[in-house]
Each structure stands twice: as structure tokens, then as C-alpha cells.
Nucleic acid binder design. Structure first.
Length: 265
DNA sequence: ATGACTGCCTCTGGCAGA
């Protein structure tokens, strides 16, 4: 009998909805689950106020890209320094929203994103969302040409298919599941990215977000908008992917649950 | 049902989120 010992790397994404408000929950999750890489979205903190020492105290090094009140992304790495490769999504010099951060971690390119919500629609916010998705596709094609193992993860604010939402009727007019949003997401996948959670859960029914309102958590009224896309080099190493759903039910929780993928070395 | 909750900055009410 031969026993295979794989070295597994866990890479996670967590829309935390305010890094300062979420610190106890966030640190608890990091220490209990101990992902090698943790990408955060909706940090909602100016750069000077980012609580970096809270993370270095528990063994995580961090880079972050924030702004006042809204948006903001960060990459935490257990025991290593993330090497920053790109700050802000290229393609529009006028865009000052802090929604994109890239780093190399042990040879893997990590692209952490917080894609615009796009509501209400029609209007400038929806137009911004679609334009942002086009810029993202351009950036990801650049990365593909490098042929480096790459993971693109974060809050995409897109419900890819009907199987990814508790009620298509309730969400029908929402920017998250408009045909234009879904088509743009599909175009990304068509370039050769593997949606890790979808691949391992082809029948759907996996949620990553539950609204604070209307007892959505208690009724399991959720949907899947936090995604992890793998380049072919990483897709070949996919072992597991999932949602740490239990954290959504804890005290002072984010409205998103963490998502993660495990890759073998 | 133009609802519901939560966080932010501080115009502690108005905005944004999804």
C-alpha cells in the first residue's frame, strides 16, 4: 500500500464588510482555518488606519489598497511577504475606486478583486460595472500570456446561473444577475478560467452571501457571488473548494461567508 | 411592500451595499 502525501495550499477569499468592525471574527477565522493566503474585500478603511499589527501578531503579513468609507482590498499571507504586482485595475486613469490588488506568493499570482455591484440599473453604476468587467478581462488576458499559475478571487458581484440563487424571481431585476453581467462573467470563463466552486458543485445550491435583512440567513435565502477562478496550471491541482458557511451565523458576522480552494503542490 | 440591516464618517443622518 502506497500513501500519497500531498502538500496542500489553501487560498481563501472573504468579503468582511469593514475590517475594523469585523476584527474579532476575522482573526478567529484566520486562526481556526489558517489559510496560506486570505484575500479580503470591503475593507472600508483608509490605508493609514488599516490594522496591520493585528495580523502580524498572529503570523500574517499583509498588503492593502484602501480608501475612505467604501471598497478596499487586502492580501494576507501566512508566514511570507506577499510581493505586490499590481495596485488598482488598469485601463482607466480616472478610476480611483480601491477594488483590485495583485501579488505573487511562492510563484502563484494572486488577483484579489471587489467587482462593482452595479445597482441601480440602468444607470452609471451599472455601466461602470460592465466597463470594469471588460477591463478585468483585458488584464486577465495579459496574465494568461505569462503562463504563470494564477488564482483570481474575490467578490465578483455576479450570480453566474439560476442554480446559484435561492430565488430567481426575487433577484430578477438586480444587477447581480442581469444577462449583461452574466455574459461578461461567462466571457471570462471562456478565456480558460475554471470556476472552482462550480466545478466541484455542478448542481449549484451553494451560497456565499446572505442579506442582513428579512431573515435571509435564517431562511437560507442566499446566492453565490464570491468566486475563485483558476488558471489551467492551478485547475490541474484542484483538490477541494468550499464555503465556511458556519461563520455567517456567528455574532457580528459579515453578510458574506469565506470561500476557499485547496491546491496541491 | 418605496419595507426589513449594517458599517462608515462624523452634516449621529445620509449614503452605500447586494
Amino acid at each position: 500500500m502506497r500513501v500519497e502525501l500531498w502538500h496542500l495550499v489553501k487560498i481563501a477569499s472573504f468579503n468582511i464588510n469593514g475590517v475594523k468592525a469585523r476584527l474579532p471574527r476575522l482573526k478567529e477565522w484566520l486562526q481556526e482555518q489558517r489559510p496560506k493566503v486570505a484575500c479580503l474585500q470591503e475593507v472600508k478603511s483608509q490605508d493609514a488606519n488599516f490594522p496591520v499589527s493585528e495580523f502580524t501578531d498572529i503570523g500574517y503579513n499583509a498588503i492593502w489598497h484602501g480608501q475612505k468609507s467604501f471598497n478596499g482590498v487586502a492580501i494576507l499571507v501566512d508566514g511570507e511577504e506577499p510581493l505586490e504586482m499590481q495596485r488598482g485595475l488598469p485601463g482607466d486613469d480616472e478610476d480611483e475606486q480601491a477594488r483590485y490588488l495583485e501579488a505573487d506568493v511562492t510563484g502563484v499570482r494572486i488577483c484579489n478583486l471587489y467587482l462593482p455591484n452595479g445597482n441601480p440599473l440602468p444607470g452609471p453604476k451599472f455601466d461602470y460595472k460592465l466597463a470594469w468587467m471588460e477591463r478585468l478581462q483585458t488584464r486577465l488576458r495579459e496574465l494568461q500570456s505569462l503562463e504563470q499559475p494564477t488564482v483570481v478571487l474575490g467578490d465578483f458581484n455576479v450570480i453566474p446561473e439560476d442554480k446559484d440563487v435561492w430565488s430567481t424571481k426575487a433577484m430578477a431585476s438586480d444587477a447581480l444577475m442581469q444577462p449583461e453581467s452574466r455574459d461578461a462573467y461567462r466571457r471570462l470563463l471562456n478565456d480558460g478560467w475554471t470556476d472552482a466552486i462550480d466545478t466541484l458543485n455542478p448542481r449549484g445550491g451553494v451560497w456565499t452571501f446572505w442579506d442582513y435583512q428579512a431573515g435571509a440567513w435564517q431562511r437560507d435565502h442566499g446566492f453565490r457571488i464570491d468566486h475563485m477562478l483558476l488558471s489551467p496550471e492551478c485547475a490541474d491541482r484542484l483538490v477541494a473548494a468550499g464555503v465556511d458557511k458556519e461563520y455567517r451565523g456567528r455574532e457580528k458576522a459579515s453578510d458574506h461567508a469565506p470561500v476557499w480552494v485547496e491546491l496541491r503542490d
